[in-house]
């Protein structure tokens, strides 16, 4: 029983890491511009389709598709941000919600048109398959790999935000965009680059998650709620908060699916509402 519990716990963590990878960009950019971007899941989906296309059509190895997915999605997102999103920063949340949902609809329909509605296959390299014994616990190697990547990215993001010059600019822009502009920071440029990195990470998460999250055109709508839960419960703009929330959400979701399939998603939604009642700005969010 304990072994099962620990395995499910570990699977939940791996799942949480994917949620973290995809949500972190949303959290930072939303905290920065207050822009409600419900199309974020579409960027993750694009990452997934980039990866499967490269693997199936060009025989590119899985690990090589990951940086390509990151880069392509990041590039595409800069175009979307400069061309479309930045026109809407001054609009109300209603316009932002509807605009980004509209974009999501278009990408879902577009992907269905090209790839069909069915699940995309992924073939993992042999060395990422199978199980390994870790402190007497049998865990999937791929899941171990996911946890490692997730932690690495989290560490890189934290270091990048805390220790680099660019990170200082991001922090200033999240804290107070007006004052940051006054200090001579090009908030628009900082934002565009942050947005690109965040979207790229979402693309990476989408590519990594093909096996566990599944990849169909419905992806952005199916997981949107989970991403938003991670962002809101973690606290806007908080890297640590997003990581914590993603792990909590991943573990709870995995636990309920395994042990309480009858209640399903009920618990995760209830936990979210309760947490937001308790801490309206998220677990580690700053009070605005």
């Amino acid at each position: 029983m304990l072994a099962i519990l620990l395995t499910v716990l570990f699977d939940g963590l791996a799942y949480g890491m994917l949620l973290f990878l995809i949500s972190i960009g949303l959290s930072v950019t939303m905290g920065m511009m207050g822009f409600v971007n419900l199309a974020h899941g579409a960027f993750a989906m694009f990452g997934g389709y980039v990866a499967t296309t490269l693997m199936q059509r060009a025989g590119v190895p899985f690990l090589v598709t990951l940086p390509v997915a990151f880069a392509l999605v990041a590039l595409a997102s800069i175009v979307v941000e400069r061309l479309l999103y930045q026109r809407l920063y001054r609009r109300g949340p209603l316009d932002q919600v509807l605009f980004t949902v509209g974009l999501t609809f278009m990408s879902v329909a577009g992907i269905t048109w090209f790839y069909g509605p069915s699940q995309q296959p992924v073939v993992l390299p042999a060395f990422l398959q199978g199980q390994v014994s870790l402190f007497g616990l049998e865990v999937g190697i791929f899941r171990l790999f996911l946890v490692a990547v997730g932690l690495l990215v989290a560490a890189a993001v934290v270091l990048g935000v805390e220790r680099t010059r660019f990170g200082a600019k991001i922090r200033a822009a999240v804290d107070n965009p007006v004052m940051a502009t006054g200090l001579g920071i090009n908030v628009g440029g900082v934002f565009a680059l942050t947005f690109a990195i965040g979207s790229g990470l979402a693309g990476l998460g989408g590519a990594l998650g093909i096996q566990i999250l599944g990849l169909t055109p419905a992806f952005p709508l199916k997981y949107l709620v989970l991403f938003l839960i991670v962002v809101s419960v973690g606290g806007l703009g908080s890297v640590g908060g997003a990581l914590l929330a993603a792990c909590v959400v991943g573990v709870i979701d995995m636990m309920t699916k395994y042990f309480l399939p009858e209640i399903g998603s009920f618990i995760i939604y209830a936990v979210m509402v309760a947490l937001l009642m308790w801490r309206p700005h998220g677990l580690l969010g700053k009070k605005s």
Binding site: G34, I229, S265, Y269, V273
Partner: peptide, 18 residues
């Protein structure tokens, strides 16, 4: 009404999903 902005969106969404 207790919460604002994103949290408010999420609470309305959460109740609906529940």
């Amino acid at each position: 009404v207790r919460v604002q902005h994103l949290a408010q969106l999420m609470v309305t969404l959460g109740f609906g999903l529940l």
